[in-house]
Each structure stands twice: as structure tokens, then as C-alpha cells.
Design a protein around this nucleic acid. Structure first.
Lengths: 193, 193
DNA sequence: GTTGAAAACTAGAGGTTCTAGGAAGGGACG
DNA sequence: CGTCCCTTCCTAGAACCTCTAGTTTTCAAC
């Protein structure tokens, strides 16, 4: 009986690949065990349960995503930074739909307590927005809208929500133009109305 | 043996309630059968399989959602219409998270072929955007960005992505202000760059 | 070599989807 | 009223899934 040489990290990596290939909810303990030529029960020595496996995929994806964004955004500001951020985000999500989907799960605080990726991604966003001259609470509001727009766009794209003719690439880059304009004209907090 | 009096419509309604209560992926044929005091296999007389059940939830949700938006937007234009649209959308999603999640599934074209809701929701969006003086292809681009922003915002809100202090309500209405400004200043197609 | 922890196994309980074929309810029609 | 027949619901069972418990095997360190 030759050992497969499993470990939590190896399982996570394989599970992440599997998620990208066939979708996150097709990642099962059984299928993963099959891929390693091992019985289901064996995996439970390395990973608590299916839930933990998926959370690990999410953490892996989150780190990879923020790493990419960080390197792309480095040294840029203003619209350059916005476009670099957005494109890095989108490209990662399209290349790794399973990992990306995992990052959108609902987590209990303690599941992600030790994750630096989360904190860092917020810093990245805020740094970018400060270049537009925004301050709190506009920073928070603009950050939320931006995350929403990026995520929403990609979610719709991945789920086939953009059925029709016009090229998504063009549409996306026009949307980035628009978001840039939006950030430059962000309505001042508490206008006199 | 008293009959439960099942039908596809009744099952769909019950499944939708269940989805709102415990989440879409907790809606199983078994659980639904249990709710009606009936055996699993009985449901397969009314519904082809689990997939079809979920698609039915989605179609129901889509109709209810567009109905709400339509009545709220009726007779409004410009920012009034935008805010009414957005709030109707968000309120429905928060009240019916399960149905809403179902509408975000990936569908095969023939699964949703006979749905009027889809066509109508696009018309509603376009009507609203025309009031801002937009024309194709800006209509498509702005529509996509708007859908993305709404969906993204609600998705993040529902999945607990907005952890921190600032009130979501305030953030949301500031985002609507910003989107209104954005639509008024939508960058003209193909600027001279 | 012995020994002990870690990695894998067997066995099995319990949940799930879905198919096939059988029985019971209830309306239509002679 | 009785019979027919469609629909609804059932039993039975295959196939797959998660996860637990307890056992054996491997490998390295002593």
C-alpha cells in the first residue's frame, strides 16, 4: 500500500483546481478522494469536513487574488490604479471561477480570523480611493460601491447574465471609464439638501 | 390515505418559502416531501427533478421582483425612478433571499425560454435609462453596470461582506446618489482618446 | 529491531436523488 | 350503481454522498 502523501495543503490545492474545472459545489470529499486514489474516510485525517475544505479554497483564492491586485496596482494611482485593480480582479475571477466563488461564501468570523488577505484587500481599495481625494465616510461608501460593481459584474458575466450582442470587454472598459468619472465627481457628503 | 393535493405550483410556492427561510441549497426534495407529509418519490410526479424545482423558484422570484419594480417605478423618471427601482430591488432581495438567490443561478436558454420576467426587467431598466438621455450602446453598458452594482451590493450585504460600523442604509443611499450623478455624467461613447 | 505517531483502511449509519413498478382515490360515463 | 382509467401516492431499491469509530499499515526515530 503506497501512501498518497496527502496533506491539508495538497488537498486544498487539488480541491481548488477541481472547483475551477467543475464548479465549487461539485467539489465533494468523495470526488477528491477518488482523484488521489484513496478512500473518502482518509481525507478526514487532514481536513475536518467538507465545509473546512471549502473555506480553505476560499482563503487560498483570497490570497492569490489580493496578491495579484497588489502587484498590478503597485506604483499606479488614479485611473491607472483603478483600471489595473479592476482588471486584475476580473481576470483572476474568470481564470479561477471556483476559487473566486469560494471567496463569496458566508463565513463565520472565526473561520477567517487568521486571514491577512481580507485586511490587505481593504487597504488596497482604500489606498486607491484616497488618490481620488476621498475621505471617510465617503471612503467606505465608495469602496462598497466599487466592490459591489466589480463583484456584480463578474458574477453576472460568469452566470451568463450578459446574453446579448455587445462585447463584454468593451462594456467592461466603458464601465471602468464611468466609475472613474464617478469617483472624480463623488457627491460630497451631506450636500445641502 | 388522505391525499396531500400536491401540484407543481404548490410545491414551488412551498419550496420558495423554504428557500427564504433556510437558504436555497437547503431546499431538497426530501425536506419538501417531509413538509407535506409525503414520500420523496411522490414529488417526482409533479416536478422532473431537483433542478427543475429550483428553476421554478427562480422564475417565481423573477416575476415577483419585476412586478414590484414595475409598480414602484411607474410614473417616475430620473432620480426618482432610479431610487424607486433600486429600493424595490433591494427590498425584495432582502425579504426573499432564497428566491433572489435562485434568480442568480446559471440557466440554460430553454429553461427560461418562456419567461416574460426577463424581457420585462430589461425593458424597465432601459426605460429608466432613456430618461437620462442615454442611447445605445451606452444604454447597454450603463444597464449592465447598474445591474452589477445593485446585485453586487445586495450579494455582499446578504453574505455579510459589509462587516463594519457605518450603516448600510446610509451607505446604500449615498451610492444611489453617486449612481445618479454617474448616469447624468455618463462619458460619451468613444471620446477622443 | 521495537515502538509510536501519522496515514491510510474497513465497516457502517444516515442522508440524499431518482427510477420502476404497484396500489389507491376520485371523477366520468355507461 | 358499477366499471374504467387517469392521477396521485406508495414501496423498494440503486447509487451516491458525508462523516464516525475503530483497526491496520507505514515510516522514521530510537
Amino acid at each position: 500500500m503506497v501512501r498518497a502523501g496527502l496533506s491539508a495543503a495538497k488537498l486544498t490545492e487539488a480541491a481548488a483546481e477541481m472547483a475551477d474545472e467543475v464548479g465549487l459545489e461539485q467539489v465533494t470529499v468523495s470526488a477528491l478522494a477518488r482523484r488521489f486514489g484513496v478512500k473518502d474516510a482518509s481525507l478526514y485525517s487532514h481536513v475536518k469536513n467538507l465545509r473546512e475544505l471549502r473555506v480553505r479554497i476560499a482563503l487560498l483564492g483570497g490570497e492569490e487574488l489580493t496578491d495579484r491586485i497588489a502587484t498590478e496596482v503597485a506604483g499606479r494611482a488614479g485611473k491607472d490604479a483603478l483600471v489595473a485593480f479592476a482588471n486584475a480582479y476580473r481576470r483572476y475571477a474568470l481564470e479561477h471561477p471556483g476559487r473566486y466563488a469560494a471567496t463569496q461564501m458566508r463565513f463565520d468570523p472565526e473561520e477567517v480570523a487568521d486571514s491577512v488577505a481580507l485586511r490587505r484587500s481593504i487597504e488596497l481599495t482604500y489606498g486607491m480611493l484616497r488618490a481620488y481625494g476621498l475621505t471617510e465616510p465617503d471612503l467606505t461608501d465608495a469602496g462598497r460601491l466599487l466592490r459591489a460593481a466589480f463583484h456584480g459584474y463578474i458574477h453576472l458575466e460568469l452566470s451568463g447574465g450578459f446574453a446579448h450582442p455587445r462585447e463584454i470587454e468593451d462594456s467592461w472598459s466603458r464601465s471602468l471609464d464611468a466609475l472613474h468619472v464617478l469617483l472624480e465627481n463623488w457627491p460630497a457628503h451631506q450636500p445641502g439638501r
